[in-house]
Design a protein around this nucleic acid. Structure first.
Lengths: 178, 178
DNA sequence: GAATTGATGTGACTCAGTAACATCACGCTA
DNA sequence: TAGCGTGATGTTACTGAGTCACATCAATTC
């Protein structure tokens, strides 16, 4: 993955071939595709882990929690897995993705998948489908916003702080909307 | 596009080659790619038109409109462009997309693009960025939900009715969330 | 020390997507 | 009417993503 981010940053996404990426990592094209289902996926691996974290956090939350509290717990748990030493890589990743439509497409899709996962988990906790889906979307949106801010500056507050902030902001924005 | 939908429905998305699609339409592969930037795009063309409709509706709404009213106007205008005779094709399209991840990915991306377009248009009307983005998302979500219902049954209410319903439902769901 | 297993390499293949050049149908003008 | 330009299409050849069958190799196990 580091090889890919570097090459994409140097030459652009299209110009870098899978073979080059694999070679820089000391492997071959075939092995690359054994680990990543396609060229873009190398930047987005680990999705199943995120899904599981969200799932478990929601399943394990206190019975009295409201939907938004469940969501807050979930993205809190997810944020906690991003240690400070991943910040720089995250920033480079963000830059590369921002430059290429195909990568943004995958990024958006991954976000949607996370939202679906949360929606399901919320429904298992008895939250009605429409509420669950909206709450999940808000959560993913908050996380994404916070993640961006986190990656942007190398010495700002930790991700968990930003995530909670973002969710609070969203909550108050919503209030002005209705 | 009809050739593509048919072939995808018959053989699945991966199994149908671009050459086959083009041939069924009485053309060649090269010509296909002159009209659609890639294989998936054949199912999603017309996006720029939708974008323009949303833009114009928002720009042309009365000065007193609230953000959600602006959004309602926009998706109303968009819905009005879907005549009843497109219902059946829409339904087949939906089925094909539902069966293939790659197509869902593109679909999600297109939805996000529409949301961005609306967000920009709302900001031009003075709506603050965070509010605009949330409102736009709600609009796209309402439209998508309505579109699904519309395509599902061949003799239900027209799309515009469903769109307005969906947006109303969303609004009340939000209220329960805060 | 042979057998098993999992990860990797090799080579050949299909198909998406690009590019250069040729052709054809058309409307316009001399 | 002949000739010209233009836009859409066809032809051919190419690159690179992604798949597949088969070979290799190292570590583990019995």
């Amino acid at each position: 993955m580091r090889a890919a981010v570097d090459l994409f940053a140097e030459q652009g996404y299209e110009a870098a071939t899978v073979q080059e990426i694999a070679e820089r990592a000391g492997l071959t094209k075939t092995t690359f595709f054994r680990h990543f289902s396609d060229k873009r996926e190398v930047l987005f691996a680990g999705q199943e882990t995120h899904r599981r974290i969200l799932d478990e956090a929601i399943a394990g939350a206190p019975a009295t929690a409201t939907p938004l509290e469940l969501v807050a717990t979930a993205i809190d748990a997810l944020s906690a897995t991003f240690a400070e030493d991943r910040r720089e890589l995250a920033a480079r990743l963000r830059t590369v993705i921002a430059r290429h439509n195909e990568l943004q497409e995958r990024a958006v899709f991954k976000r949607t998948s996370l939202a679906s996962a949360m929606t399901e988990a919320l429904q298992l906790r008895g939250v009605p489908a429409s509420t669950a889906s909206l709450a999940a979307d808000l959560g993913v949106r908050a996380f994404h916003q916070a993640f961006d801010r986190w990656a942007e500056s190398s010495d700002g507050p930790p991700l968990t702080t930003l995530t909670r902030q973002a969710l609070d902001e969203l909550r108050s924005t919503i209030a002005t909307l209705v």
